[in-house]
């Protein structure tokens, strides 16, 4: 089954982080990504730019496109990256989520990918 791990963390923490700690923490992510790849569980994964770079788009009832600067809502933790993994079941997904460095500094949300195969 495919699961998306959504990494929520306090992005301010990253912006004020001393360089040595930054190297250590990104090193932990690199090692984690390698471990996922070695296990054959990694489908894809990326960090995201901070929420300050976010743009919100919606089309209102009159058909007018609205474009807004910034994140949708102010929260303590922000979506800062994701992994897509392919593992046997939720227990395996929980085990991988617990190993993710983000689980120690923020939270990891596990979402199963919906299977929308259209009947032949």
């Amino acid at each position: 089954m495919e699961y998306v791990l959504l990494l929520h963390d306090d992005e301010k923490r990253w912006s004020v982080m001393p360089e040595e700690q930054f190297r250590r923490e990104t090193g932990a992510y690199a090692a984690y990504t390698d471990a996922l790849r070695e296990a054959g569980a990694l489908v894809s994964g990326n960090p995201l730019q901070p929420t300050a770079t976010a743009t919100i788009v919606s089309i209102d009832a009159d058909g007018k496109t609205n474009v807004l600067d910034g994140p949708y809502a102010e929260t303590k933790e922000q979506l800062g990256g994701y992994y897509v993994i392919d593992v046997a079941d939720l227990d395996a997904a929980i085990a991988w989520a617990a190993r993710c460095p983000c689980a120690a500094t923020g939270t990891v949300e596990i979402r199963p990918v919906a299977d929308l195969t259209i009947p032949a």
């Binding site: 089954m1 699961y3 046997a88 079941d89 939720l90 227990d91 997904a93 596990i110 199963p112």
Partner: peptide, 14 residues
């Protein structure tokens, strides 16, 4: 069903 919770006895650790 949707989240893929396995139907089995957990490992010793859990």
């Amino acid at each position: 069903a949707d989240a893929g919770i396995p139907l089995r006895v957990p490992d010793v650790a859990d």
